[in-house]
């Protein structure tokens, strides 16, 4: 097959990648396929056809568990070898980043990391990639076939096409992995999705204590918004299961209010697609102020409750 192959363990991400792949494939008159890897193949796997796949290649094996990088690499490499696509799009989850690089190393292929746009021209792939934590964008020509690219969530948009996909099982050689999973703990499922929230209150390390979170929640409630956070607030303080930013989620809210966020590039990438950004920080030299539309130099614990009240008083819609 010439054309584009799409893989992620996240089904929503597969749909997003298919959305873009379908568009490019239609322009170039080529094919799109999705890959499903797992212990067993779910009955509804053909539904990727709805989202633009012509074919769904599946690999089923008892060894495809726990996102073990070795077995998933074997399986994906096996599919690529048989299918011979021009381009493989892989969702930039942690597992996706890991196995795409391993597959590429095995096949002698190049990977464009954090691709945000691409084109297929005269048999080679050109990809725009985020660089320096999102400060810039490089355009690369990928000289290998296949070419690989990793893509974050919410970069491309899923488009329902109502097509029908052919499901083809692939027999890939999967070796017994050296890496053993001793214990597997599912993380608490994240509640509501930040990605779709109309408004975000983004809490950083400037908030003193978890007991202060209601300050943020009351503000978010006015807008039917969500409270989200920076990486250290999640990974070190454990207040939330996820965070916003380069290595976390990205939001597209109409309004994002950051509270006690310093404005590191890695964090700002997660909120910069918001329509309007308000920043509250005690340090008037904080970098976040140059990334915001409105900045307030104040202690968030004191300012936000007053601000919330004034919003209620002055806007009938919010009150």
């Amino acid at each position: 097959m010439a054309g584009i192959l799409v893989y992620s363990e996240k089904q929503q991400l597969v749909r997003e990648l298919l959305g873009k792949a379908r568009q490019i494939a239609d322009e170039k008159g080529t094919a799109v396929a999705a890959v499903y890897l797992g212990e067993s193949i779910p009955a509804d796997v053909a539904e990727f056809g709805d989202w633009g796949a012509d074919t769904v290649y599946t690999v089923a094996s008892p060894l495809l568990v726990g996102l073990n990088p070795e077995t998933y690499t074997d399986a994906l490499a096996g599919v690529i070898e048989q299918v011979e696509p021009d381009l493989v799009l892989v969702g930039a989850t942690k597992s996706g980043l890991e196995i795409s690089a391993r597959v590429a190393a095995r096949l002698g292929a190049g990977v464009a990391s954090f691709c945000v746009d691409f084109s297929l021209d005269h048999g080679f792939v050109t990809a725009d990639c985020m660089i320096y934590s999102g400060v810039g964008k490089n355009t690369y020509k990928i000289k290998t076939q296949p070419a690989l690219a990793t893509v974050n969530a919410a970069v491309f948009t899923a488009v329902e096409t109502g097509g029908v996909a052919k499901v083809t099982a692939v027999d890939a050689a999967i070796k017994e992995p050296a890496l053993k999973i001793i214990e597997y703990k599912e993380k608490a499922a994240a509640g509501v999705k930040w990605e779709d929230a109309p408004m975000i209150v983004d809490v950083g390390q400037g908030m003193n204590s978890q007991d202060d979170l209601p300050i943020a929640e009351s503000l978010a409630a006015l807008f039917d918004g969500q409270v989200a956070c920076s990486r250290p607030v999640s990974s070190e303080r454990d207040w939330f299961p996820e965070w916003l930013g380069l290595s976390g989620k990205r939001v597209h809210a109409d309004l994002t209010v950051t509270l006690g966020i310093s404005g590191s590039v890695q964090h700002v990438v997660g909120i910069r697609d918001s329509k309007t950004i308000i920043a509250v920080n005690t340090d008037e030299n904080a970098g976040i102020f140059s990334q915001a539309d409105y900045g307030v130099v104040a202690d968030l614990h004191e300012f936000v409750p007053i601000f919330t009240d004034v919003l209620k008083a002055k806007s009938a819609k919010l009150a």
Partner: peptide, 24 residues
């Protein structure tokens, strides 16, 4: 495997209006 053909910065336009003062 990758040949860089172009590089550019990502420009974000923000109003950058900063308010300060003691009276919250």
């Amino acid at each position: 495997a990758l040949e860089k053909v172009h590089a550019e910065g990502v420009v974000v336009h923000r109003k950058q209006y900063v308010l300060k003062g003691d009276d919250l």
